[in-house]
Design a protein around this nucleic acid. Structure first.
Lengths: 154, 154
DNA sequence: CGGAAATAATCAGTGCCCTGACTATCTGGT
DNA sequence: ACCAGATAGTCAGGGCACTGATTATTTCCG
Protein backbone atom coordinates (compact mmCIF):
# COMPACT_ATOMS: atom_id res chain seq x y z
CA UNK A 1 0.00 0.00 0.00
CA UNK A 2 1.29 3.44 -0.87
CA UNK A 3 4.37 2.35 -2.76
CA UNK A 4 5.51 4.86 -5.35
CA UNK A 5 6.53 4.29 -8.97
CA UNK A 6 10.30 4.46 -9.10
CA UNK A 7 10.35 5.07 -12.84
CA UNK A 8 9.07 8.59 -12.15
CA UNK A 9 11.92 9.31 -9.74
CA UNK A 10 14.76 11.20 -11.38
CA UNK A 11 17.29 9.88 -8.90
CA UNK A 12 16.45 6.30 -9.69
CA UNK A 13 16.60 7.05 -13.40
CA UNK A 14 19.95 8.81 -13.01
CA UNK A 15 21.39 5.78 -11.29
CA UNK A 16 20.10 3.43 -13.97
CA UNK A 17 21.53 5.68 -16.65
CA UNK A 18 24.93 5.61 -15.07
CA UNK A 19 24.83 1.84 -14.68
CA UNK A 20 23.95 1.48 -18.34
CA UNK A 21 26.85 3.73 -19.23
CA UNK A 22 29.24 1.82 -16.98
CA UNK A 23 28.26 -1.40 -18.72
CA UNK A 24 28.82 -0.04 -22.20
CA UNK A 25 32.10 1.63 -21.25
CA UNK A 26 33.37 -1.63 -19.88
CA UNK A 27 32.63 -3.57 -23.03
CA UNK A 28 33.34 -0.91 -25.67
CA UNK A 29 36.07 1.32 -24.26
CA UNK A 30 38.25 -0.26 -21.59
CA UNK A 31 38.23 -2.63 -18.67
CA UNK A 32 41.33 -1.02 -17.18
CA UNK A 33 40.64 2.68 -17.41
CA UNK A 34 37.34 3.94 -16.07
CA UNK A 35 35.31 6.89 -17.26
CA UNK A 36 36.35 9.18 -14.39
CA UNK A 37 39.98 8.21 -14.99
CA UNK A 38 39.60 9.15 -18.64
CA UNK A 39 38.12 12.48 -17.58
CA UNK A 40 41.26 13.18 -15.54
CA UNK A 41 43.57 12.22 -18.42
CA UNK A 42 41.54 14.44 -20.72
CA UNK A 43 41.79 17.42 -18.38
CA UNK A 44 45.55 17.04 -18.15
CA UNK A 45 45.88 16.84 -21.92
CA UNK A 46 44.13 20.20 -22.13
CA UNK A 47 45.93 21.78 -19.19
CA UNK A 48 49.18 20.07 -18.18
CA UNK A 49 50.65 21.05 -14.84
CA UNK A 50 47.36 21.50 -13.02
CA UNK A 51 47.26 20.71 -9.31
CA UNK A 52 45.11 17.95 -7.86
CA UNK A 53 42.36 20.13 -6.45
CA UNK A 54 41.83 21.98 -9.72
CA UNK A 55 41.65 18.76 -11.70
CA UNK A 56 39.01 17.58 -9.28
CA UNK A 57 37.07 20.77 -9.82
CA UNK A 58 37.25 20.36 -13.61
CA UNK A 59 35.91 16.81 -13.63
CA UNK A 60 33.58 17.21 -10.67
CA UNK A 61 35.23 15.13 -7.96
CA UNK A 62 35.88 16.06 -4.34
CA UNK A 63 39.35 16.18 -2.81
CA UNK A 64 39.26 12.64 -1.44
CA UNK A 65 38.01 10.94 -4.56
CA UNK A 66 40.33 12.78 -6.91
CA UNK A 67 43.27 11.78 -4.70
CA UNK A 68 42.37 8.10 -5.12
CA UNK A 69 41.85 8.35 -8.87
CA UNK A 70 45.16 10.16 -9.33
CA UNK A 71 46.99 7.69 -7.14
CA UNK A 72 45.72 4.84 -9.34
CA UNK A 73 46.73 6.63 -12.53
CA UNK A 74 50.14 7.29 -11.00
CA UNK A 75 50.60 3.62 -10.04
CA UNK A 76 49.87 2.67 -13.65
CA UNK A 77 52.51 5.13 -14.83
CA UNK A 78 50.07 7.34 -16.72
CA UNK A 79 50.93 10.57 -14.90
CA UNK A 80 53.66 12.22 -12.84
CA UNK A 81 53.21 14.12 -9.63
CA UNK A 82 55.78 16.71 -8.51
CA UNK A 83 55.77 19.22 -5.67
CA UNK A 84 55.15 22.75 -6.83
CA UNK A 85 58.40 24.63 -6.06
CA UNK A 86 56.35 27.83 -5.75
CA UNK A 87 53.86 26.36 -3.29
CA UNK A 88 54.84 23.42 -1.13
CA UNK A 89 51.24 22.36 -0.55
CA UNK A 90 50.50 21.57 -4.16
CA UNK A 91 51.38 18.68 -6.42
CA UNK A 92 51.63 19.48 -10.11
CA UNK A 93 50.29 16.80 -12.43
CA UNK A 94 51.39 15.96 -15.92
CA UNK A 95 50.76 12.99 -18.21
CA UNK A 96 53.57 10.63 -19.15
CA UNK A 97 54.10 9.48 -22.75
CA UNK A 98 52.12 6.39 -21.88
CA UNK A 99 49.39 8.54 -20.42
CA UNK A 100 49.06 10.56 -23.61
CA UNK A 101 49.07 7.42 -25.72
CA UNK A 102 46.30 5.94 -23.59
CA UNK A 103 44.26 9.11 -23.86
CA UNK A 104 44.54 9.12 -27.67
CA UNK A 105 43.49 5.50 -27.92
CA UNK A 106 40.50 5.90 -25.61
CA UNK A 107 39.32 9.10 -27.25
CA UNK A 108 38.52 7.18 -30.42
CA UNK A 109 36.75 4.37 -28.62
CA UNK A 110 34.82 6.77 -26.42
CA UNK A 111 33.43 8.56 -29.45
CA UNK A 112 32.25 5.25 -30.88
CA UNK A 113 30.70 4.31 -27.57
CA UNK A 114 28.84 7.59 -27.23
CA UNK A 115 27.30 7.03 -30.64
CA UNK A 116 26.00 3.63 -29.63
CA UNK A 117 24.84 4.91 -26.25
CA UNK A 118 22.87 7.78 -27.78
CA UNK A 119 21.89 5.71 -30.80
CA UNK A 120 18.23 5.32 -29.75
CA UNK A 121 17.78 9.11 -29.92
CA UNK A 122 17.51 11.35 -32.98
CA UNK A 123 20.02 14.17 -33.35
CA UNK A 124 17.50 16.64 -32.04
CA UNK A 125 16.64 14.46 -29.08
CA UNK A 126 20.32 14.15 -28.27
CA UNK A 127 20.61 17.94 -27.94
CA UNK A 128 17.58 17.93 -25.68
CA UNK A 129 19.06 15.12 -23.64
CA UNK A 130 22.22 17.16 -23.01
CA UNK A 131 20.33 20.36 -22.40
CA UNK A 132 17.84 18.92 -19.91
CA UNK A 133 20.38 16.98 -17.89
CA UNK A 134 22.80 19.87 -17.81
CA UNK A 135 20.13 22.26 -16.58
CA UNK A 136 18.97 19.95 -13.80
CA UNK A 137 22.51 19.16 -12.68
CA UNK A 138 23.65 22.79 -12.79
CA UNK A 139 20.64 23.99 -10.82
CA UNK A 140 21.11 21.39 -8.06
CA UNK A 141 24.82 22.17 -8.04
CA UNK A 142 24.00 25.85 -7.57
CA UNK A 143 21.87 25.07 -4.52
CA UNK A 144 24.86 24.15 -2.39
CA UNK A 145 26.38 27.65 -2.23
CA UNK A 146 23.40 29.64 -0.95
CA UNK A 147 25.07 33.02 -1.55
CA UNK A 148 26.31 32.27 -5.06
CA UNK A 149 23.74 32.28 -7.85
CA UNK A 150 24.68 29.85 -10.62
CA UNK A 151 25.95 32.46 -13.08
CA UNK A 152 27.45 35.42 -11.30
CA UNK A 153 27.32 38.66 -13.23
CA UNK A 154 30.11 40.79 -11.78
CA UNK B 1 46.00 19.13 -27.92
CA UNK B 2 43.11 16.88 -28.87
CA UNK B 3 41.30 17.05 -25.58
CA UNK B 4 37.56 16.50 -25.91
CA UNK B 5 34.70 18.47 -24.38
CA UNK B 6 33.37 16.42 -21.48
CA UNK B 7 30.07 18.28 -21.41
CA UNK B 8 29.13 16.46 -24.62
CA UNK B 9 29.81 13.06 -23.06
CA UNK B 10 26.65 11.41 -21.78
CA UNK B 11 28.58 9.35 -19.24
CA UNK B 12 30.09 12.40 -17.66
CA UNK B 13 26.72 14.11 -17.61
CA UNK B 14 25.10 11.05 -16.05
CA UNK B 15 27.66 11.04 -13.28
CA UNK B 16 27.16 14.74 -12.59
CA UNK B 17 23.41 14.25 -12.53
CA UNK B 18 23.70 11.53 -9.96
CA UNK B 19 26.03 13.57 -7.81
CA UNK B 20 23.59 16.48 -7.92
CA UNK B 21 20.83 14.14 -6.86
CA UNK B 22 22.90 12.63 -4.06
CA UNK B 23 23.55 16.11 -2.71
CA UNK B 24 19.91 17.12 -2.73
CA UNK B 25 18.78 13.81 -1.25
CA UNK B 26 21.21 14.24 1.61
CA UNK B 27 19.97 17.69 2.50
CA UNK B 28 16.26 17.32 1.74
CA UNK B 29 15.38 13.68 2.41
CA UNK B 30 17.68 11.85 4.80
CA UNK B 31 21.26 11.53 5.93
CA UNK B 32 20.66 8.01 7.23
CA UNK B 33 18.70 6.32 4.48
CA UNK B 34 20.08 6.51 0.96
CA UNK B 35 18.17 6.58 -2.27
CA UNK B 36 18.91 2.92 -3.15
CA UNK B 37 17.87 1.93 0.37
CA UNK B 38 14.58 3.76 -0.10
CA UNK B 39 14.09 1.95 -3.39
CA UNK B 40 14.39 -1.37 -1.54
CA UNK B 41 11.93 -0.31 1.17
CA UNK B 42 9.54 0.85 -1.52
CA UNK B 43 9.73 -2.45 -3.36
CA UNK B 44 8.98 -4.39 -0.18
CA UNK B 45 5.99 -2.18 0.60
CA UNK B 46 4.56 -3.10 -2.78
CA UNK B 47 5.51 -6.79 -2.61
CA UNK B 48 6.24 -8.12 0.88
CA UNK B 49 7.92 -11.50 1.09
CA UNK B 50 10.09 -11.10 -1.98
CA UNK B 51 13.47 -12.80 -2.00
CA UNK B 52 16.72 -10.89 -2.19
CA UNK B 53 17.50 -11.56 -5.83
CA UNK B 54 14.09 -10.41 -7.01
CA UNK B 55 14.29 -7.20 -5.00
CA UNK B 56 17.64 -6.56 -6.64
CA UNK B 57 16.09 -7.10 -10.02
CA UNK B 58 13.25 -4.68 -9.24
CA UNK B 59 15.52 -1.83 -8.17
CA UNK B 60 18.36 -2.60 -10.58
CA UNK B 61 21.11 -3.88 -8.31
CA UNK B 62 23.27 -6.99 -8.74
CA UNK B 63 23.36 -9.82 -6.20
CA UNK B 64 26.39 -8.47 -4.31
CA UNK B 65 25.19 -4.91 -3.95
CA UNK B 66 21.67 -5.85 -2.95
CA UNK B 67 23.10 -8.12 -0.26
CA UNK B 68 25.01 -5.21 1.27
CA UNK B 69 22.07 -2.83 1.13
CA UNK B 70 19.75 -5.39 2.70
CA UNK B 71 22.24 -6.20 5.40
CA UNK B 72 22.41 -2.52 6.34
CA UNK B 73 18.63 -2.20 6.40
CA UNK B 74 18.48 -5.33 8.56
CA UNK B 75 21.04 -3.95 11.00
CA UNK B 76 18.90 -0.83 11.38
CA UNK B 77 15.88 -2.99 12.13
CA UNK B 78 13.93 -1.87 9.06
CA UNK B 79 13.40 -5.34 7.62
CA UNK B 80 13.35 -9.03 8.56
CA UNK B 81 15.00 -11.86 6.72
CA UNK B 82 13.74 -15.43 7.07
CA UNK B 83 14.65 -18.63 5.25
CA UNK B 84 12.04 -19.73 2.78
CA UNK B 85 10.71 -23.06 4.17
CA UNK B 86 9.86 -24.06 0.59
CA UNK B 87 13.32 -23.31 -0.79
CA UNK B 88 16.33 -23.33 1.51
CA UNK B 89 18.39 -21.15 -0.79
CA UNK B 90 16.14 -18.13 -0.51
CA UNK B 91 15.64 -15.52 2.17
CA UNK B 92 12.21 -13.91 2.30
CA UNK B 93 12.21 -10.22 3.10
CA UNK B 94 9.57 -8.19 4.87
CA UNK B 95 9.54 -4.71 6.39
CA UNK B 96 9.23 -4.22 10.13
CA UNK B 97 6.82 -1.67 11.65
CA UNK B 98 9.75 0.69 11.85
CA UNK B 99 10.57 0.01 8.21
CA UNK B 100 7.08 0.88 7.09
CA UNK B 101 7.09 4.03 9.20
CA UNK B 102 10.37 5.09 7.66
CA UNK B 103 9.06 4.46 4.18
CA UNK B 104 5.98 6.59 4.80
CA UNK B 105 8.03 9.46 6.17
CA UNK B 106 10.53 9.42 3.33
CA UNK B 107 7.87 9.13 0.63
CA UNK B 108 6.64 12.60 1.50
CA UNK B 109 10.08 14.13 1.58
CA UNK B 110 11.12 12.40 -1.63
CA UNK B 111 8.17 13.90 -3.47
CA UNK B 112 9.16 17.38 -2.28
CA UNK B 113 12.74 16.75 -3.29
CA UNK B 114 11.82 15.59 -6.77
CA UNK B 115 9.88 18.81 -7.29
CA UNK B 116 12.88 20.90 -6.38
CA UNK B 117 15.22 18.74 -8.43
CA UNK B 118 13.07 18.99 -11.56
CA UNK B 119 12.09 22.57 -10.76
CA UNK B 120 14.20 24.10 -13.54
CA UNK B 121 12.19 22.19 -16.17
CA UNK B 122 8.66 22.84 -17.41
CA UNK B 123 6.10 20.04 -17.05
CA UNK B 124 6.58 19.12 -20.69
CA UNK B 125 10.34 19.10 -20.38
CA UNK B 126 10.05 16.84 -17.36
CA UNK B 127 8.21 14.23 -19.43
CA UNK B 128 10.90 14.48 -22.08
CA UNK B 129 13.58 14.15 -19.42
CA UNK B 130 12.04 10.88 -18.22
CA UNK B 131 11.40 9.60 -21.70
CA UNK B 132 14.87 10.29 -23.08
CA UNK B 133 16.75 8.88 -20.12
CA UNK B 134 14.54 5.82 -19.95
CA UNK B 135 15.02 5.07 -23.63
CA UNK B 136 18.80 5.40 -23.46
CA UNK B 137 19.06 3.32 -20.30
CA UNK B 138 16.71 0.61 -21.57
CA UNK B 139 18.54 0.31 -24.88
CA UNK B 140 21.95 -0.06 -23.24
CA UNK B 141 20.44 -2.50 -20.78
CA UNK B 142 19.12 -4.54 -23.70
CA UNK B 143 22.57 -4.77 -25.24
CA UNK B 144 23.86 -7.10 -22.54
CA UNK B 145 21.68 -10.11 -23.48
CA UNK B 146 22.48 -10.47 -27.20
CA UNK B 147 19.75 -13.01 -27.83
CA UNK B 148 16.99 -11.22 -25.94
CA UNK B 149 15.42 -8.21 -27.62
CA UNK B 150 14.27 -5.62 -25.07
CA UNK B 151 10.59 -6.57 -25.13
CA UNK B 152 10.06 -10.24 -25.79
CA UNK B 153 6.76 -11.19 -27.36
CA UNK B 154 6.14 -14.80 -26.40
C1' DC C 1 58.00 39.70 12.63
C1' DG C 2 54.54 36.47 14.34
C1' DG C 3 50.35 34.20 14.84
C1' DA C 4 45.52 33.39 12.92
C1' DA C 5 43.03 32.06 8.96
C1' DA C 6 43.03 29.88 4.58
C1' DT C 7 44.38 26.27 1.56
C1' DA C 8 46.27 21.49 -0.51
C1' DA C 9 46.56 17.08 0.50
C1' DT C 10 45.90 12.85 3.42
C1' DC C 11 43.40 9.63 6.38
C1' DA C 12 39.50 7.17 8.57
C1' DG C 13 35.00 5.80 7.99
C1' DT C 14 30.63 4.74 5.37
C1' DG C 15 28.10 3.39 1.39
C1' DC C 16 27.33 2.17 -3.54
C1' DC C 17 28.60 -0.78 -7.60
C1' DC C 18 30.57 -4.38 -10.29
C1' DT C 19 33.03 -9.05 -11.49
C1' DG C 20 34.59 -13.65 -10.57
C1' DA C 21 35.00 -17.50 -7.47
C1' DC C 22 32.77 -20.30 -4.08
C1' DT C 23 28.99 -22.79 -1.14
C1' DA C 24 24.58 -24.58 -0.42
C1' DT C 25 20.39 -26.00 -2.15
C1' DC C 26 17.22 -27.44 -5.52
C1' DT C 27 15.63 -29.48 -10.08
C1' DG C 28 15.42 -32.37 -13.95
C1' DG C 29 16.66 -36.31 -16.56
C1' DT C 30 18.20 -40.93 -16.81
C1' DA D 1 18.19 -42.89 -6.61
C1' DC D 2 21.66 -40.39 -8.68
C1' DC D 3 24.22 -36.75 -10.61
C1' DA D 4 24.69 -32.63 -13.71
C1' DG D 5 23.16 -28.15 -14.20
C1' DA D 6 20.72 -24.20 -12.51
C1' DT D 7 19.90 -20.99 -8.86
C1' DA D 8 20.34 -17.98 -4.20
C1' DG D 9 23.44 -16.16 -1.48
C1' DT D 10 28.26 -15.05 0.26
C1' DC D 11 33.00 -13.53 -0.09
C1' DA D 12 37.23 -11.32 -1.95
C1' DG D 13 38.76 -7.69 -4.54
C1' DG D 14 38.75 -3.27 -7.14
C1' DG D 15 36.86 1.28 -8.03
C1' DC D 16 33.81 5.54 -7.21
C1' DA D 17 31.89 9.10 -4.01
C1' DC D 18 31.06 11.72 0.17
C1' DT D 19 31.97 13.79 5.09
C1' DG D 20 34.74 15.09 8.97
C1' DA D 21 39.23 15.30 11.15
C1' DT D 22 44.20 16.06 10.68
C1' DT D 23 48.75 17.76 8.80
C1' DA D 24 51.65 20.80 6.28
C1' DT D 25 52.24 25.00 4.07
C1' DT D 26 51.22 29.59 2.76
C1' DT D 27 49.13 34.10 3.26
C1' DC D 28 47.42 37.96 5.34
C1' DC D 29 47.14 41.28 8.94
C1' DG D 30 48.34 43.70 13.00
Amino acid sequence: MAAVDLTTHPGHLARRLQQAHYLLWNTMVSEEITSPQFAVLNTLVAEPGLDQRTVGERVGLDRSTIAEVISRLGRRGLLDKVRDPQDGRRFLLRLTEEGERTHRKLTVRTARMNQVFLGPLTAEEQSQFFDLIRRVADAAEGLRNPGEPTAVRS
